[in-house]
C-alpha cells in the first residue's frame, strides 16, 4: 500500500492504494465520491469522466498512483460555491438533458471540458466531442441542446424547434 495525495474538488485528500487501484476506485470507495460512475470495462462509456489537472480523463483507465499530486475535479465539485447548479448543470436541467442520471456526471464533465476548449461550439462539434460518452436514455438530443444552451446559443433555432 502506498499513500497517494490528491487535491479533489479543491480539498487535499489522501488514500492508501495498491498499484492497481484505479482513480475511480479511490474516488468512489476511499473518498465516498460516488457521483463518478463505472459503466464499462473498455473506457468507452465515459460515465467515469473526471478532470485531472484541468483535462477530462476516464478515471477507470487511470491508475491513482500515476496521478499522485494531481488536482482532480469530479461532478461533486461542479456546482457553484453556494451549492446552486452551475450554468452547464442548470442547462441540463432546463433542457431535460438527463433521464436515468447514470451517464450524467460524465456528460457534464465532458461538456465542461468542451466549453473550456471551445466556448461556442457548433452542433457537429458538440456531437463529435461526445464520442466517448454513451447515453442510452436521451438519444443525445437534449444533451446536445443543453450544451449548446450552456454556450449561450439559441438552441431552439438550432434544433429546428
Amino acid at each position: 500500500m502506498t499513500t497517494v495525495k490528491l487535491s479533489v474538488n479543491g480539498k487535499e485528500m489522501s488514500a492508501e492504494v495498491e498499484g492497481r487501484t484505479l482513480l475511480v476506485d479511490v474516488l468512489r470507495e476511499k473518498l465516498g465520491l460516488t457521483g463518478t460512475h463505472v459503466g464499462c470495462d473498455t473506457s468507452q462509456c465515459g460515465a467515469c469522466t473526471v478532470h485531472v489537472d484541468g483535462k477530462s480523463m476516464k478515471s477507470c483507465s487511470v491508475l491513482a498512483i500515476d496521478v499522485a499530486g494531481a488536482e482532480v475535479t469530479t461532478i461533486e465539485g461542479m456546482a457553484n460555491p453556494d451549492g446552486s447548479l452551475s450554468v452547464i448543470q442548470a442547462a441540463f436541467k432546463e433542457h431535460h438533458g438527463l433521464q436515468c442520471g447514470f451517464c450524467t456526471p460524465g456528460m457534464v464533465m465532458t461538456a465542461a471540458a468542451l466549453l473550456k476548449e471551445n466556448p461556442v461550439p457548433t452542433e457537429g462539434e458538440v456531437r463529435a466531442y461526445l464520442e466517448g460518452n454513451i447515453c442510452r436514455c436521451t438519444g443525445y438530443h437534449n444533451i446536445v441542446k443543453a450544451i449548446l444552451a450552456a454556450s449561450g446559443q439559441d438552441v431552439a433555432a438550432m434544433a429546428g424547434e
Binding site: 473506457s43 468507452q44 485531472v52 477530462s56 480523463m57 476516464k58 483507465s61 487511470v62 471540458a113 466517448g132
Partner: peptide, 9 residues
C-alpha cells in the same frame, strides 16, 4: 484518435 478524454491521456 479515441475520444477527447482518451486523447488527454
Amino acid at each position: 484518435i479515441g475520444d477527447p478524454a482518451v486523447r488527454n491521456r
